[in-house]
Every structure is written in C-alpha cells, then in structure tokens.
C-alpha cells in the first residue's frame, strides 16, 4: 500500500486535516476519509458534475482533483451551503420549484448554481443553461432547475 500524505486544508470554513494516498481524488478524500458524502460520484471522469465543489472560488469536479492538491486551499461542499439550520435561498428554491427528483445530481447543481450567482447575480436563462451545462440531470429535463435558479436571480435583481 502507498505511504499516506498529511493534508491540511479548509473545508466549509473549518480547518481540516486528513491522511490520504497520493492517488486518491479529492472526491474520494471528501467522501471516504472526511465523511462528507453529500458530494456524489456519478462518473469519476469529470463529465457528470455530481461531485462539483468550490476550490478557492472556482468550481471544479472533485473527481479530477487529487486530495493532496487540497493542501492550503479552501473548499466549499454542499454541506457548507446552508447557514446552520437556515437553507440557502437556492436550496429553498429547488424545493419550492420541485427542481429535483432522485436528488443525486442536486448537490452538484446547487454548488454550481451558487457559484454562478456569487459571480453573476442576475444571469438570464441562456447564461444559466451555459453555466450548468457541466452538470448532468437525467430526471428533470432541467426545466425546473433552470426555473429555480432564475427565481433566485430575479430575487437578486429585485
């Protein structure tokens, strides 16, 4: 077995240390070592977006990042989106718009959509569709997801 590496990082505004093998992806480290299983694996090759997290203000597919690359970085996962017991307005909008069915892609979509609204508070439909094109959903046909994000964009505008 490979010798493990000590990684110090910040996850959801909390200092975290973990030991991982150099070959382990950030996705694997988050899920199997740190225990944050809200980030999902759908393909493990960067094509479905279910494992989307924010790494230093940039969204990444965590299956394509190595765990050791988290050293000294800041990571936000789906578990860090709500403020304590208070759902983020995107999470609320997903619920009221019925923007999820099976829910496996939902964490990735919410992390990606939040990154969009953080950088562009008023995206139009086309911009939302472009931004979310890296996240696959097989249940909804995207309609209600786009509506949920649009609703939050409108709120930002109001």
């Amino acid at each position: 077995m490979q010798r493990k590496v000590h990684v110090r990082t910040t996850i959801n505004n909390q200092a975290v240390e973990f030991l991982c093998e150099p070959r382990q992806s950030l996705l694997e480290c988050l899920r199997d070592i740190v225990g944050l299983t809200g980030t999902k694996e759908g393909c493990n090759d960067g094509n479905c977006g279910s494992c989307t997290v924010v790494l230093d203000d940039r969204i990444v597919t965590s299956c394509l990042v190595l765990g050791v690359e988290a050293e000294g970085r800041k990571i936000t996962t789906i578990e860090g989106i709500a403020a304590g017991n208070q759902l983020h307005r995107l999470q609320q909008a997903f619920l009221t718009n019925a923007a999820l069915q099976c829910g496996i892609c939902t964490p990735g979509f919410i992390v990606a959509a939040k990154a969009l609204l953080d950088s562009e508070p008023n995206p139009d439909e086309e911009r939302i569709r472009l931004w979310l094109a890296g996240n696959l959903c097989r249940c909804t046909g995207y309609d209600k997801i786009v509506r949920a994000v649009s609703e939050c964009a409108r709120e930002a505008k109001a």
């Binding site: 899920r31 199997d32 225990g35 944050l36 299983t37 809200g38 980030t39 999902k40 694996e41 996962t77 789906i78 578990e79 989106i81 709500a82 759902l87 999470q91 997903f94 619920l95 999820l100 829910g103 496996i104 939902t106 964490p107 919410i110």
Partner: peptide, 17 residues
C-alpha cells in the same frame, strides 16, 4: 425528503459506511 436532498444529508447506496 426535500431538506435532506438539497443539503447532501440524504444517504444513497454508495454513502453507506
């Protein structure tokens, strides 16, 4: 089951430990 599914708390098969 909405709150669990928008916060990442819902446990899917691969999440079982």
């Amino acid at each position: 089951d909405g709150a669990d599914k928008v916060t990442g708390r819902a446990i899917y098969g691969a999440d079982v430990q």
